[in-house]
Nucleic acid binder design. Structure first.
Length: 276
DNA sequence: AATACTACCTGCGTGC
DNA sequence: TGCACGCAGGTAGTAT
């Protein structure tokens, strides 16, 4: 489920539910979810660890434990579920963190793309996937001039460039379509051909789209009962994503769906025009 | 170095 | 009803 707003919502949920819990046992049902170390070390090293805090960088969650940093990436469908003792184990439950009070944090993932990585304390920022991330999409960290300079270096469609996480972190397939629509930029416009006006609009659109989604608690497309961060959340009002054939909120033209870099892409062919 | 394609998985909707 | 196929909120590895 996760782009930045959804991951942030999960982070807040975790901080409400599992802070100061002490791990008694860890059970892994699908080995490949654990990226590092091996399963035996992963499960053994976590025993006795306490969850001090949960932070986020881009779409990565970082559990700050007594002696370790545990990184979690939900990829396409990963979810956390916090359950009471003796709750039956459902299909797609791949990792169970059992606490000393017998409650559990469970990791569920239909497609098994998500990953958990256990690293020495305070080394999460050196993790390969996190190190390459661009700035967080906030006005303080995501700077227009720098963004403009970076875009000039790339002869590639703007949409896949924004999905790459290196110029800016946090956008995924939904919010990138929404941001490009807001900025009135065609998803296949080559990055280094964007005018300064367009870059300025895009910069603001990215910050606003993600901030509003965080405010709303993220967007749930396929809802999963009981999953952390998905219960009772407000839906973000999407303008183009999943709106194929519906009228554009600006001009009434039917929203078009095409494929860009293998991803479904929604846009208004009148408001978002390619130019030289 | 930058870009493009594929693999990783399961489930669901669609069309024949 | 059954089956094949395409599609799904992401990233990492490999090839060019």
């Amino acid at each position: 489920m996760p782009e930045l707003p959804e991951v942030e919502t999960v982070r807040k949920g975790l901080e409400q539910l599992v802070l100061n819990k002490k791990i008694k046992e860890v059970l892994v049902a699908w080995d490949r979810i654990i990226e590092r170390p091996n399963i035996e070390d992963f499960t053994n090293q976590l025993i006795g660890e306490k969850i001090d805090s949960v932070s986020r960088r881009g779409k990565y969650l970082i559990f700050h434990l007594t002696h370790y940093d545990m990184i979690s990436h939900l990829r396409m469908e990963g979810k956390f579920d916090y359950v009471q003792p003796d709750t039956s184990v459902t299909k797609h439950t791949h990792v169970r963190f059992i606490f000393t009070d017998h409650t559990e944090l469970r990791y569920l993932d239909v497609r098994k793309f998500g990953r958990l990585t256990l690293l020495p304390k305070n080394t999460a920022m050196d993790y390969k996937g996190i190190k390459k991330l661009g700035p967080e999409p906030t006005p303080e960290e995501f700077l227009l001039e720098s963004f403009n300079q970076q875009l000039k270096k790339h002869h590639k469609a703007i949409k896949p460039l924004l999905l790459d996480q290196t110029l800016i972190t946090g956008l995924g397939n939904i919010y990138v379509d929404e941001a490009l629509f807001k900025a009135k930029i065609h998803p296949e416009q080559t990055a280094n051909t964007l005018t300064f006006d367009e870059v300025t609009r895009l910069h603001v659109a990215i910050i606003n789209v993600l901030a509003q989604a965080v405010e709303a608690g993220g967007t749930t497309i396929r809802s999963y009962k009981n999953a952390l961060g998905e219960a009772g959340t407000f839906q973000v009002n999407l303008m183009v994503y999943g709106k194929t054939g519906e009228p554009c909120p600006n001009c009434g033209t039917e929203i078009t769906k095409i494929k860009v870099a293998q991803r479904g892409t929604h846009f208004c062919s009148l408001c978002q025009r390619i130019h030289l």
